[in-house]
């Protein structure tokens, strides 16, 4: 069978480290994406760690755990994707550097790196597998999926892909208008045969930017090849119909998670995301479920 199995997915919005159920339910994305509305298992993130980490790190931890990250083979790498990473922490550091005696909090400093979330994951989950962090603006998740696809095609059996961005709150310089919601999601991909997976990632393809590529012709070829039931075209230049706002960097992840997780009939999705550095076409299929 073509492609790889999507063995499981996890998604988190808002602050999953808050034990208070009402806070857990106060998700920042009111759309149709089914989110697990249940308090997290507290033991996974110790209390002293919870106080130190950003919402993005917390979301990545719980989304990856909910995607079966703890059950994945020890060798399965985790690819983390984020456009803006720990941008709110970086904003706080910028302010602290303005003082006459500049100082940076050690915790803020090591939490400001783009790979903070996968670092915490490996420590808390006690996993020795490789992690990497990929970034390319609004197509960060899509390029991480392409990177995962390359790894699966060249011999990896299992890969975890986690994408996430948190709402920009104290970094006006970063055009906060393009990221006003939190969203993080993880897919557990496997090239091994699975009797239980209800969804597959059928193909991931890079599409060169115009004028190299004629968008219309490429889309027609993809439609002819995959006969999708649902076609979604988007990217930063599009008016993207998600509750995340038109230019949210994780809009592509939102569409893919919604297709895989929401109740509905069986079908095939063609998700084409265009950006200034080229686009990515994602083809996924799913079985019917309630």
């Amino acid at each position: 069978m073509r492609g790889v199995s999507i063995l499981a997915t996890g998604v988190a919005c808002g602050d999953p480290t808050l034990a208070d159920r009402s806070s857990w339910n106060a998700v920042r994305v009111p759309g149709e994406l089914p989110v697990r509305h249940e308090p997290p298992i507290d033991e996974f993130v110790p209390r002293n760690t919870r106080r130190r980490i950003s919402r993005l790190i917390a979301m990545a931890l719980y989304a990856t755990r909910d995607a079966g990250g703890l059950d994945a083979p020890q060798a399965a790498p985790l690819l983390f994707a984020s456009a803006n990473g720990e941008i709110n922490t970086i904003g706080a550091i910028l302010r602290s550097l303005l003082s006459e005696a500049p100082s940076v909090s050690p915790t803020s400093f090591h939490n400001s790196v783009h790979n903070a979330a996968p670092g915490y994951w490996s420590i808390l989950a006690r996993r020795f597998a490789a992690t990497s962090t990929i970034s390319q603006g609004s197509l960060s998740f899509e390029f991480a999926l392409l990177d995962a696809w390359a790894r699966l095609a060249s011999g990896e059996d299992d890969v975890l892909v986690c994408g996430g961005d948190e709402a920009i709150e104290n970094a006006d310089w970063a055009d906060p208008g393009h990221c006003t919601h939190d969203l993080c999601g993880t897919l557990r991909l496997s090239s091994a045969p699975s009797a239980t997976a209800s969804a597959r990632l059928v193909d991931v393809r890079f599409l060169p930017a115009e004028p190299v590529l004629d968008r219309g012709a490429v889309q027609a070829a993809l439609v002819a090849e995959f006969a999708p039931d649902l076609i979604l075209e988007g990217g930063p230049d599009f008016d993207d119909p998600t509750p995340l706002g038109g230019r949210h960097p994780m809009a592509g992840l939102w569409h893919l998670l919604r297709f895989v997780r929401a109740p509905g009939p069986a079908g095939t999705l063609l998700l084409v995301r265009h950006g200034p550095a080229g686009g990515i076409a994602i083809v996924a299929s799913r079985e019917a479920h309630d």
């Binding site: 456009a83 803006n84 990473g85 790196v113 783009h114 790979n115 996968p118 992690t131 990497s132 962090t133 990929i134 970034s135 390319q136 603006g137 197509l139 960060s140 390029f143 392409l146 990177d147 890079f206 060169p208 930017a209 190299v212 200034p276 550095a277 080229g278």
Partner: peptide, 24 residues
Amino acid sequence: SFGACATLAARLAGVSGPAYAVST
């Protein structure tokens, strides 16, 4: 933005394959 260096490198080199950044 972290992907910018990769996009710039592609422009400098005149290439149009996939271009992205890794930040670990």
